[in-house]
Design a protein around this nucleic acid. Structure first.
Length: 645
DNA sequence: ATTAGGG
DNA sequence: CCCTAAT
């Protein structure tokens, strides 16, 4: 007996909507749950199923970006789903979520959502459920109104209908279908297209995953195919044809482009068929269509959609039944046949990761995707290890640096807001059913890493280190942070001037080779140094934690100790350099600086500033001769002054 | 938990 | 960077 859970959570409709203006896109997550496991469970599910919640997963921000209602909110949903199966309920996430939200500036809705999720998480108390239902009932009208107000007539229509349906039905499945049936034809507006598509897609995939995960569920499969079938049939043929044509007509190059857009990586494959299939699959499985070319902005999305949506449909129509097998067996593994040891591939992976981390929209998709992927042969989602993220951030850093090179002087206080600081550290262990698949995914990597969350923050005892290194640290940290510090996705680290530092920080990973030597060594970028200096200037040397908190909000690595150490080094360097500086002149100094190893030649002015600050510091505390300061600093003062005063 | 200092 | 002692 399978039950289809139709969870549509809807937080924030009423109050904040106007603030974020734009439009809310509705997504529904449909999960087919297999009831075979246990009667209790299925009962639980039933209740859940009978209690559709509407939740807005994605919202459009002012700048047009699509933003998941919150990373963690999505996670919430994910959790809900997971919990559906595992019955686990963790509280920790909520806290994180909470913090995040307030930090993000999405105030009030939080409570709404929290209310929902709370009840969702707590045991299945029929009372609570009822309460929730009521709540929803209350909400719906408002929501509807909102919808109508800001959406075009058609879309308003649509959403209304959809909601009504969801609201009314306790089965959800048929109704939803019906809803879709109605929707499709009148799908004239652009806005409806994506959402409805998302619906379909999600359903399909979800079902698939469910199938894979808990064994074939006839019901589920049936419903899925029914759904897609209905959609397809009710959908004007032209679109499908169009889709076909679209992909067909594309040149190999274009296909490759599409591929790149879909997967964020280049491909050299020239097999049209393969490419088509791949793209289609990529889109279907992941909706992860974020990348460069296809703009996901309001209207633009359609552009892409027009082109790719049909393919999806087509896919779901044709490939759906065979898909699971297909995917596993598909030679597409070439996607990951790359070994982590290869620099090229690493870069690629990084790019991919970067994109995902950055792409607000994809984030939403990603979450679901991860969910799904984790369930059936995760072929490409392997969560970025912390290592990855670190490297990635460096990578991006370097990227940015190109454009912000000149900020040495005007090192303004573009401190990134500490927004993202509070990112939760997801405990993977609690991620209920994440079993064997993990190994599959890693299998592609050549190294089999048991994906048992080995969460330990403290470093391994020395003896251990060797061992750990041998295994490759990746996993060690993997467990601990994962998404913990992906500040990038918020586009925080804008300020990072550098570009001069050692090359190869990003992909330097001696670990792969000999594996014994290094601990993670992360070269300080110029930007970081600047930040540090500035931080010291602002908060004073010694208040490392402060500095770390405020000035280094975006750099999750770099502990206060690191800062301190770095400062010490800087100081030393500056002192060592200074005398020369005085006697010889900038040019010589410069040469001196750069002549060293290519490693991070800290620009003289910075060193000067460092020294300055140091002296300032000691001056304030002790009583050193001010004359000395002025004497040395005089020349540099301007730098400093213009820099951060 | 944070800071200072030695390694 | 790591580690430890001291606060």
């Amino acid at each position: 007996m399978g039950t289809v859970v139709d969870i549509q959570v809807d937080g924030e409709k009423e109050s904040e909507e106007s603030d974020f203006g734009k439009a809310g896109v509705e997504f529904s997550m449909r999960t087919a749950v297999d009831g075979e496991k246990g009667t209790e469970e299925s009962d639980f599910r039933k209740i859940v199923a009978s209690d559709p919640v509407v939740y807005q997963l994605v919202r459009v921000e002012g700048d047009g970006r699509l933003v998941p209602a919150t990373d963690d909110e999505v996670m919430e949903v994910e959790h809900l789903l997971e919990e559906d199966k595992s019955g686990l309920a963790s509280d920790g996430d909520k806290k994180h979520f909470d913090g995040r939200v307030s930090n993000e500036g999405l105030p009030s809705k939080k409570s709404d959502f929290e209310g929902l999720s709370q009840s969702e998480n707590t045991e299945v108390d029929s009372q609570e459920l009822n309460a929730r239902l009521e709540y929803i009932e209350v909400m719906l009208p408002k929501v509807k109104q909102e919808e109508r107000l800001r959406m075009s007539p058609e879309s308003a229509n649509h959403s209304t209908k959809c909601m009504d349906v969801n609201h009314q039905t306790f089965d959800g499945r048929d109704e939803t279908q019906a809803c879709k049936d109605k929707l499709q034809p009148e799908n004239t507006s652009m806005e409806t297209a994506p959402s409805s598509m998302a619906l379909n897609d999600r359903q399909g995939v979800q079902l698939e995953s469910a199938e894979t995960c808990s064994g074939p569920t006839n019901q589920a499969v049936t419903s899925s195919s029914t759904v897609s079938g209905t959609c397809t049939s009710s959908m004007p043929d032209f679109s499908i044809l169009k889709g076909d044509i679209c992909l067909d007509n594309l040149s190999i190059r274009e296909l490759q482009e599409a591929f790149r857009a879909t997967f964020g990586r280049q491909t050299s494959v020239k097999d049209k068929l393969w490419l088509k299939r791949r793209i289609t699959m990529g889109l279907t499985n992941s909706c992860d269509v974020p990348t460069s070319n296809f703009v996901m902005k309001d209207n633009k999305i359609v552009l892409k959609e027009v082109k790719e949506e049909p393919s999806k449909l087509q896919k779901s129509k044709t490939e759906e039944s065979t898909l699971p097998t297909d995917q596993v067996t598909d030679p597409t593994n070439s996607n990951f046949q790359d070994l982590p040891t290869s620099p090229t591939n690493q870069t690629e992976d990084q790019q991919v990761a970067s994109k995902r981390l950055r792409k607000p929209l994809s984030e939403y998709d990603e979450k679901n995707e991860n969910l799904q992927m984790e369930q059936f042969a995760a072929k490409r989602v392997r969560k970025p290890t912390r290592r990855y993220i670190e490297e990635l951030s460096e990578f991006e850093t370097r990227e940015c640096s190109a454009r912000l090179l000149s900020s040495v002087k005007n090192s303004g206080h573009d401190q990134s807001s500490p927004k993202s600081r509070i990112r939760p550290v997801r405990d993977i262990g609690s991620r209920g059913p994440s079993f064997s698949t993990r190994q599959d995914s890693l299998g592609g990597f050549g190294i089999q890493v048991p994906y048992v969350s080995r969460v330990r923050r403290g470093r391994p005892r020395k003896n251990f280190v060797t061992l750990m290194n041998f295994v490759d640290e990746g996993e060690k940290r993997d467990a601990e942070t994962i998404y913990g510090d992906d500040e990038h996705d918020l586009g925080l680290e804008e300020f990072d001037a550098s570009g001069d530092n050692t090359d190869g920080n990003a992909n330097t990973e001696p670990a792969s080779k000999c594996g014994v030597r290094r601990k993670h060594h992360r070269a300080w970028t110029l930007g970081e140094v600047l930040k540090l200096v500035e931080g010291v200037a602002r908060y004073g040397a010694g208040r490392w934690s402060e500095i770390r908190r405020l000035a280094f909000a975006s750099y999750s690595y770099r502990t206060s100790v690191d800062l301190k150490d770095k400062w010490r080094n800087l100081l030393r360097a500056s002192l060592a350099q200074d005398p020369t500086d005085e006697g010889v002149g900038p040019l010589a100094t410069l040469a001196k600086n750069s002549r060293k190893h290519a490693s991070v030649p800290i620009p003289t002015p910075i060193l000067s500033r460092v020294r300055e600050l140091a002296e300032m510091n000691s001056q304030t505390c002790t009583e050193l001769g001010p004359s000395k300061i002025t004497g040395h600093g005089g020349r540099n003062v301007q730098e400093k002054g213009s820099g951060f005063l």
